[in-house]
Amino acid sequence: MAAAIADQAIQGVLLGGLYCMFALGLSLTVGVLRFVNIAHGDLIVLLSFLTLAVCTGLGIHPLLSLVLVVPLSCALFYALQRLLLQRVTGQNPLLVLLITFGIAIIIQNGLLQGFGADTRKLPGGALETATWQVAPGLYVGILPLLTLLTAIVMVWLLDLLLYRSRLGARIRAASDDVAAANLIGLPTPRIFAAAMAVVGATAAVAACFMGLQMNFDPASGPSRLLIAFEAVVLGGLGSLWGTLAGGIVLGVAQSIGGEFDAAWQAIAGHAAFLLIFLLRPQGFFPKY
């Protein structure tokens, strides 16, 4: 029994890596651009479909297709911010929320129209089934492990980008005080769009790993959004390492709930979120 629970906990930590990937982009959006993107999950699903199309079209491995999908995603997110969301930033923040809500519904139904309601999976080949024996009787999937490691590297890179680079300083400056940034000559619309392009890069990687590990269909977006949101809030709004911690907590909770059935898996995740949120509303590592 103890071994089974330990096994579930390990699987949960690994699952948390995937959830952290979903959430990183949202964490940046919330922490830096100061809005909640309701279409975040749907954009990830859209990118999973795009990855699928690239893989099958070119006959290459999903991980290799990132070379193409990441730049495309950056461009998509950049354009989304620059052409659409920027037009309402600075006004009532709820308008941005409602616009992303409209985008979410358009993406869901556009995918349904284009790809049908079937569930899909990215073809991972041998990577899908490869395992590593950690201890006698304890196996860990190579793919989940790779996912967690990639998530950690992503957090580290984003942290470097935000706190050690020129673009990062500009992004934080514009986020601190847009009006002052404009007044001293920072091109804030371009800076916000660049930040959104970074979000796009994380979303593309998340979409690839999600598609390799889980089934997805045009309606999967909202559940991804909720998990990402929960990880961000649990970690503390705007804290990247906190988002990783939040993702892992959710992964473990879901994994243990999943011992019973799929519905309990989801219930356990949401319940854990609400409970921890009630006890610690500021999150694990609050920034603000």
Partner: peptide, 23 residues
């Protein structure tokens, strides 16, 4: 629960609560 979240975050908070009720 949800009123502990500010403005925009509250929106998703209500969604989480709804999802939990449905489940």
């Amino acid at each position: 629960i949800v009123f502990r979240l500010r403005a925009m975050y509250l929106a998703i908070g209500t969604w989480v609560v709804a999802e939990l009720f449905m489940l």
